[in-house]
Design a protein around this nucleic acid. Structure first.
Lengths: 339, 339
DNA sequence: CCTGGATGCGCAAACGATTGCACAAAAATA
DNA sequence: TATTTTTGTGCAATCGTTTGCGCATCCAGG
């Protein structure tokens, strides 16, 4: 029953008493093959449901039309969204998408990169793991001549295209809104400072305070606070303070959430006693009460742009390729938590 | 600068004044090659950072060690979680993961399947789109002899392995909990009934009412209510009723959420006036107030099991292969919304 | 009738690896 | 010393396509 077997171009040729080359050309509508022959071949191909073998094609053409996506974890909303954007563009351009999760582990990340340089992919879109501090693996990858595009979490000094959001600007927007609403003593949850995005958010926070002649108080800057747990811990410290901050600008939504939950448990009101602004605009932000003010990163758009850049580089990469950096503007969604 | 070029086995052979075959064997530790030669070859390979070409290897071996994952949308938490589970197992077994999103479109789904039968993947894990009603594409796929495993949303009468959760049982658990807490007039948000999972949830709801001698009232069964919007609309109808239900069992968390939000807007209290139970255990369920009672589907585990089944089938598929169905037990997380 | 250019198709090399087989040289046996 | 066995390599086919080139056949122009 059924055509269990996969047909090759040789099978078709034998069937038609011709040669593989003719079949191949006929299927490609090569004008050097007679119209009649082309039709004959195509009819048979249709009938047998012939499809050229992907692996053979890849070898011959030197490309499997595949792009890799290396991200920390696919089941985190932001990354899933970016991936979706990448997939949208890639599929439209007839590329396949290979997915690789580093699980925030540098070792896994390195192993994945190593496995990719064997020519599995025509290009790679990556966002580095939280622990990644040296660029050796990525350099090696680049040396093989495979295009690479970073998004969000990038290695600054690598000569590749990047898609970022303006984290600095985001921080400025957020902190200014807090200042505008009357907050004068604004705490900050900072992320690991060796990662570009967190560093920029912190810089934006500090500069904005300065610009508004507000003092910088290291006491109320909490480092490495990006999870719900650490956010809660930080909030507990804040609650103890004699000169308690009246607002928090958090580098992440999860730590903002943790803070809000712990605040409520201690009877502190958001935004009445303390306003809170997050970063990432996770979907849960609109569902909690009070809804969380946050900065949207346009994940879908980031993915699309990254894929555009990469495909452009794959297909039109000249000898004098110049990497580009696309910077997206974050969007501040002001909600109840900072009103 | 740098080794921009990718080396082949021929390059190594030339460098060492030997032949590709010897190099190949040496790299594989073939005992027919002298220990000395093996070392020489490996040293050079290391030095040049040689990696066998993936495409050539795939063609020769007849497999690219790649599995495809076809899902409606990667940026939905459940699917992202399953994907993560699949990736975990696949990576451990040295498989690549190719991702395909149908975006709930039957046409896209069919196009993707067509593109996959060219031998891109050694097997496919799929969850069908909401509109998929006929199995033609999947049958065609199977006829090419490529293993297929369904999860969650499956086509019942296809002879393939499946990983499911016991949706019927989940509904029973949920409805019984509502009954136990004293609810007597339980409404139901049903999903599209041509999808196995929604049908089973509805069946569980009906049977449980019957088993407890509660009347089935078609008036309070709302079909195709799985989004936030439709959940809200349904709730608005419920609010108008003279004989208002005192609980809702929803086939999805989003419609449950929509209902809760609209209930609050109308001054109806959850769970005081009406209890709500969802399905999926989306992460936001614990963040909203009241927290949402829901059924966890063990997405990660589903992904792992699906990948296990598929890889097993790929590698040990005998002539007398018998598809297996793994059924996972959903877990009811009782939270404030149904207390 | 002869020459020259289309026209239509086949041969064989290539992509980069693996592998069955053959074949030297060295070692072991007679 | 002659013969067999072992040891180490090389040749060439193969996986399924694509494609440069060559070679017939045919038709038209001179």
């Amino acid at each position: 029953m059924g055509s269990k077997k996969r047909y090759t171009i040789h099978d078709l040729a034998r069937e038609l008493n011709t040669t593989p080359s003719t079949v191949s050309r006929a299927l490609q509508d090569n004008p050097r093959i007679s119209v009649k022959m082309r039709k004959t071949v195509k009819d048979l191909a249709d009938k047998l449901n012939y499809q050229p073998d992907f692996k053979a094609l890849s070898l011959r053409k030197g490309s499997g039309r595949t792009i890799g996506v290396l991200i920390p974890q696919v089941d985190r909303h932001f990354f899933a969204t970016v991936l979706s954007g990448i997939d949208e563009v890639a599929t439209a351009a007839n590329y396949n998408v290979l997915i690789c999760q580093s699980m925030e582990s540098v070792e896994k990340e390195n192993a994945l990169i190593r496995s990719l340089i064997s020519g599995k992919v025509d290009g790679l879109i990556a966002s580095i793991s939280i622990g990644t501090k040296d660029a050796a693996s990525f350099k090696m990858f680049l040396e093989k001549g495979i295009p690479l595009v970073f998004f969000d979490r990038v290695i600054e000094d690598l000569r590749v295209s990047k898609v970022l959001i303006d984290d600095y600007m985001g921080a400025v927007l957020a902190v200014e809104q807090l200042i505008n609403r009357g907050s004068k003593h604004i705490a900050h949850f900072a992320g690991p400072q060796h990662i570009n995005i967190y560093q920029n958010r912190t810089r934006g926070y500090i500069d904005t305070l300065k610009n508004h002649s507000l003092p910088i108080d290291e006491e109320i800057i909490f480092y490495n606070v990006i999870t719900r747990e650490t956010g809660c811990q930080a909030m507990n410290k804040i609650i103890e303070m004699r000169n308690r901050p009246d607002a928090i600008f958090s580098s992440g939504d999860y730590s903002a959430l943790g803070a809000m939950i712990c605040a409520r448990e201690s009877g502190l009101e958001v935004p009445g006693d303390i306003a809170v602004t997050g970063f990432a605009n996770e979907p849960f932000g609109t569902l909690i009460d009070p809804a969380l003010t946050s900065l949207d990163q346009h994940g879908l758009e980031m993915g699309r742009q990254a894929a555009d850049l990469l495909i452009e580089e794959i297909e039109h990469t000249g000898p004098n390729f110049v990497p580009r950096t696309v910077v997206l503007n974050p969007e501040l969604h002001i909600r109840k938590s900072s009103r």
